[in-house]
Amino acid sequence: MSTIANYGEVQRALQTDTEQILAQIPVSPVTLSMPMDGAGPRICASVKRDDTSRVPASVNVVLDGNPVEIVVEAVGDYQDFKAL
């Protein structure tokens, strides 16, 4: 049984389990991040407005051998990043 990820686990998962997380969010383009707004540990998935419904409510990773569930928040505000 998995536990809900805390802030530390969200940050770590985004840094080390990026491919597994992206594989569970079948939307492109997407920007993933950990918001620092104090509204709870989660991944923010910025996607195009029409794609928000395709973003799952959570993703699962394994950290130190333990299954962890990470809440995903879909936001329809995706914007291209360009090298400046």
Binding site: T31, M36, F81
Partner: peptide
């Protein structure tokens, strides 16, 4: 700084 651990594609 509003976000940490950002994952994204960047256009070059």
């Amino acid at each position: 700084v509003t976000q940490l651990a950002v994952v994204t594609d960047v256009r070059y």
